[in-house]
């Protein structure tokens, strides 16, 4: 591993700060991801591992969803000493790309939303997806966005609906971070409102 845990992880963190404070801003973790040796045994992508290394240590807990979740949990535990736990108790939920459709919905449903007194005790869900790019499929609004911004993301399922339900009682809720195969990072904190931009509907209205 040629990764410098001081400087490279600082740079990952700053990109995470940029993307979280400006939802819809896509950050590139490619440079840092290239410093990790090849694909690791457990099946996590390099950008997912980078985020685990940036955020996890023995003070926090996590859970992995994936076809071989146990191996991935072992790998992350060995790298960070964080403890793997049940979904509803985990501070960080990692969803690998091979986890299957509907896993994100399940994770959102099970994740800890925090309480009104302590909303910061809620979980952060980090999910691998297909390609993330700027586009107009999903329209984002909320703090960090001047008026609205659009993104395009290859991800099926009812996760937008589930997330909306989970985050209904602000300030409780879950925050989402997505990384794709090209190490593009997108962050959707609980304050961001997502609307599907349906072309057909727009045409019909016009």
């Amino acid at each position: 591993m040629k990764l410098d845990i001081v400087h490279d992880l600082q740079s990952v963190y700053r990109k995470l700060v940029d993307s979280t404070s400006r939802p819809g801003l896509i950050s590139d973790l490619g440079k840092e991801a290239a410093l990790l040796d090849g694909k690791n045994a457990a099946g996590c992508s390099n950008s997912m591992l980078l985020l685990a290394l940036t955020l996890l240590d023995p003070e926090v807990t996590f859970k992995v969803y994936g076809s071989d979740a146990e191996a991935a949990e072992k790998e992350i535990n060995q790298l960070t000493f964080a403890k793997a736990v049940q979904a509803d108790q985990a501070d960080y939920l990692f969803i690998l790309e091979d986890a299957g459709a509907g896993t994100l919905d399940e994770a959102i449903e099970n994740a800890n939303p925090g309480t009104f007194v302590n909303p910061h005790k809620s979980a952060l869900i980090i999910a691998e997806t297909g390609a993330i790019s700027a586009g107009e499929c999903l329209l984002l609004k909320g703090p960090g966005i001047q008026t609205s911004t659009g993104i395009k993301m290859d991800l099926i399922g009812n996760w937008i609906e589930r997330r909306k339900e989970k985050n209904r009682e602000y300030p409780t809720g879950v925050d989402l971070v997505f990384v794709d195969r090209n190490h593009q990072l997108l962050s959707l904190p609980r304050t961001t409102q997502i609307a599907l931009n349906r072309e057909e509907e727009r045409e019909w209205v016009m």
């Binding site: 979280t20 940036t54 996890l56």
Partner: peptide, 28 residues
Amino acid sequence: NFAFFDEGSKREIRRATLKAIAIPGYQV
């Protein structure tokens, strides 16, 4: 250390900061 802190301290402050950004105005 670079930036005075050990990496564990930075990580803890960073985790709190990210939550603070996600919940504007809430004191983490």
